[in-house]
Amino acid sequence: MDAICVENITKAYGKGQSPAVDGISFSVGAGELFGLIGPDGAGKTTLFRILITLLLPDAGHATVGGLDIVREYQKIRSTVGYMPGKFSLYTDLTVEENLHFFASVFNARVSDNYSLIRDLYEQIKPFKDRRAGKLSGGMKQKLALCCALIHRPTVLFLDEPTTGVDPVSRKEFWDMLGRLRSEGITILVSTPYMDEAARCDRIALIQQGHILSVDTPQGLRAGYPHPLYAVGGAPMPALLQRLAGHPDVVSSYAFGEWAHAAGTTTLGEGVLQAYLRDAGLPEAIVQATDATIEDCFMDLMKRN
């Protein structure tokens, strides 16, 4: 049975507004770590709020843990964990008090499921008597995750958990998600960072309320339809300008220090190198490269 099943969910805020979520369908298997990847304003948070029963959809059906989000919303609430993008614990309660409060809200005790959060909680335990509002960003995230997990939910919803968190804490956070998955908890996580997508079992790319693609990260990258070249060694503006001028280049864009150029099959490494030399950039270096999630996203966005 699928842990989350979404069918044609649509939601618009107010009449005449373009929908924030437009006919979205996908499903998440039990125990899967599923990523919802898309830029800000793509509709990720709206979809989350619908699935955790804070928002009613205009149309469509969805189930979480086999329970209907509209009819059986009360049952869903005791089985899911939700961590909103914005830190929303009681800042005037201490770390420990927050944890105990959220456990009791779900009729649970901290000791019941302590094993689940031990690794995480041990890291913030030295600060257990500190008010939650006085924690650093990374520790706040850890505490929020602890509070979302303390009743051992079967499905965990994490809305942009790593936005504004330093790279080391981000890595630790994703390591933790991997461990939770091995405990059998289904996780739906949204993020605007493409590099995090690779750590999910499957990902859905979402843009302007539509799902562009649902696949495994490997499948998505393997399905990239064009030969892709990384071009560097020359000033970026000049590179991008020349690349856009080549008839066989389908798309080109900056990718960190390099420019990525996707071309038709007739475009080869040598062809591109020669073209750039003739165009006045003899120092340019061209290398064939594998597509990343971001390349796939750029390609899908362009096609839709």
Binding site: Q74, V80, Y82, F87, L89, F102
Partner: peptide, 13 residues
Amino acid sequence: EVGTIEQINVSPI
């Protein structure tokens, strides 16, 4: 304002 009410709302309270 803080958003804690959402946490309460998704609970069985």
